[in-house]
Design a protein around this nucleic acid. Structure first.
Length: 271
DNA sequence: CGCCAGGACGCCC
DNA sequence: GGGCGTCATGGC
């Protein structure tokens, strides 16, 4: 990744980035495509910072109206620009299925998101579909002026108060996660630093957090690249392409591999 | 109408 | 410990 400063913002040169594949692939739910003039433009927010990012030409992206300090202090990390994805994909290409997934969607990156937002987002995701997950999170943020609520704020709510979200049976889970996080019973920063098995156990103490949601929080909210969420799509990949189990040598970055496979299987033409 | 969605829980055996 | 019905909601 290289970048330069302009009047319009920061111009980033990066071949291993596709905005659709990275911002609209089910790892984050608060990015919206607002234009598609050249390639595309997304608007979204991480914690309390808004960003508009556009692809201006092949391999070049404009991070609108931000300073170099904002870019270096926040967005460079969020987009995982310090990781060399071409190197990563080189190791993935030893596996035939993964190699095909990488050529299909080579612009996926693992975003380094906020653990609290991820916890709530993936509690909402259970037995749900991506458009509806986005809608529920939209309405949640709408209750707080368009930003994602802090744990302390959300812990003031009851499942009844959350009825306008239309999150169904998940409302009581949201409240439990907020209560435990706000009170310190759940310490997300502490969990992020734990050995992964211990971290899983700790996350699953929250009502509504089972194996799949815990794994998503670890991968998407704590950058634990060995975490490997298995949903119905990945189950399909595993049974069709890895009947003998997922390759051991990919374990360290299994979660990132999983992102490529998830996108690949979901977008395969109907057989 | 029934089926499914980035599942987890409670109850049963 | 594994199997199964249930849990809201909305798109298809």
């Amino acid at each position: 990744m290289d970048y330069k400063i302009t009047d319009a913002g920061i111009i980033v040169s990066e071949d291993d980035l596709d905005l659709d594949e990275t911002l609209d692939c089910g790892q984050a739910f608060r990015w919206r495509k607002i234009a598609s003039d050249y390639e595309c433009t997304y608007q979204g927010r991480f914690l309390n910072d808004d960003l508009v990012v556009s692809q201006v030409k092949k391999g070049e992206f404009l991070f609108h109206d931000i300073s170099e300090a904002d870019f270096l202090g926040k967005w460079k990390d969020y987009f995982d620009f310090d990781t060399d994805y071409s190197e990563l994909k080189k190791s993935f290409s030893e596996d035939e299925t993964l190699s095909r997934a990488c050529s299909f969607a080579g612009g996926i990156r693992l975003l380094r998101q906020d653990s609290w937002e991820c916890l709530i987002s993936f509690i909402i995701s259970q037995n749900n579909n991506i458009p509806r997950i986005k809608g529920i999170i939209d309405r949640l943020c709408g209750m707080y002026g368009g930003r994602f609520p802090e744990a302390g704020e959300l812990s003031e709510e009851t499942p009844d108060n959350l009825a306008p979200l239309r999150s169904g049976f998940r409302a009581k889970y949201i409240c439990d996660a907020a209560a435990k996080t706000a009170s310190g019973v759940t310490d997300l920063a502490g969990i992020a630093a734990m050995p992964i098995e211990e971290a899983r156990t700790e996350l699953k103490k929250i009502s509504g957090v089972g194996p799949k949601v815990a794994e998503c929080v670890l991968l998407f909210g704590m950058y634990r690249t060995e975490a490997f969420p298995v949903d119905v799509w990945i189950k399909r990949v595993l049974s069709e392409y890895y009947p003998g189990g997922f390759p051991e040598y990919l374990k360290e970055n299994a979660g990132i591999a999983q992102q490529y496979l998830f996108h690949y299987i979901r977008n395969l033409p109907e057989k």
